[in-house]
Computed example of a mutant assay.
Amino acid sequence: MRRLLLALLPLVTLLSACTSTDYDLVQTASIPPRFHDKDPQDFGDRTPQHHSIHGIDVSKWQGDIDWAAVKQSGVSFAFIKATEGKDVVDTRFSEYWPKARAAGIAYAPYHFYYFCSTADEQADWFIRNVPRSAVHLPPVLDVEWNGESKTCRYRPSPLTVQSEMKRFMDRLEAYYGKRPIIYTSVDFHRDNLVGQFNEHHFWVRSVAKHPVEIYKDRRWAFWQYTSTGQIPGISGNTDINVFAGSEKNWRKWVKAVSEPKQVAGN
């Protein structure tokens, strides 16, 4: 555990010294977009183009991906859907993560949480289907309301949500030796997560405004700023994200979290 805490210090330092508003001090008029966007938003002076590290998140819906072209376009990282609930595996996961690794793209698996299954059932399923070699960057827990689900629209209380999330993430941290990142949306964060899990890194969705405007007192590490991005090597729309820190911060953090850790069973 001491080694794990030491490994997390680079990003803790980054997020303490460099908040999401530091970039607002820079003039943005001359900053071109890194990637084409079918539905670009005007973020004003808080444009995500301030950030030097961009990445994508993908699932089976992206279909065939030319990972070498993705890397060459300037993509630094990829969050890849692995599992959902207690019995769903993304059909492209076992293909995507080795190809991302071969292309030199930092990668991490993510799990879409299903509130009609228990935290232990879902942790068991994730661990069964995601080898340690697929966890380069820390694993991601994707928590959001899914009002369009045909099988589960249950919305637990905030306390239940928080306790289930903690149980799931504690299981993954114990097994993989890396503290999970939390991905969330505006409404879910507002309903359940304000002031919670401050020891975890957050990946937030905010496609119309800068996160500082809509996530109350939340320090974020990753920002998903569009769902209509166009990435060379991928057909159709792709989510694009940025990392909060500088390129130097990024290199230090990736090196720290990708090193082997002492985990259960080793």
Score class of each variant (00 low, 15 high):
F197I: 07
T184Q: 04
V135Q: 03
A29H: 10
S94M: 06
F188H: 07
D24A: 12
Y175D: 08
V257A: 01
R205E: 05
R132S: 09
D39P: 00
V143E: 07
A100L: 07
K86A: 15
S16W: 14
K99S: 07
H210G: 00
E173R: 14
W203E: 11
Q62Y: 06
R34N: 06
D42T: 06
A119C: 12
L8R: 13
A123C: 08
V207F: 07
V12T: 09
H54G: 01
D66K: 01
V58R: 05
S73I: 04
P156C: 13
H200M: 09
S117K: 12
N241S: 15
A103L: 06
P48Q: 08
F77R: 07
V135N: 06
V135I: 06
D64E: 15
T184D: 03
Y176L: 08
L8Q: 14
E213G: 00
A69I: 03
V26R: 15
S73A: 15
L137T: 05
Y113E: 02
L137C: 05
P156Y: 08
L25M: 04
D37T: 01
W223P: 03
V207K: 14
F43T: 02
D142T: 07
G55A: 12
Y225V: 05
R3L: 13
P40S: 11
K71L: 04
T118L: 03
T19I: 00
W203N: 12
F126S: 09
D24H: 07
C18H: 13
R218A: 08
D39H: 11
D42N: 15
V186D: 09
C152P: 03
A256I: 00
R2C: 01
A221D: 03
D87N: 15
D142I: 06
E121G: 03
Q230R: 12
T184H: 03
S235D: 13
A134C: 04
G265R: 10
R167K: 15
G229Y: 03
N146P: 02
S20Y: 00
E247D: 11
S133Y: 02
A134K: 02
A17K: 10
A256S: 11
F168A: 05
F35G: 03
W145V: 00
K99F: 02
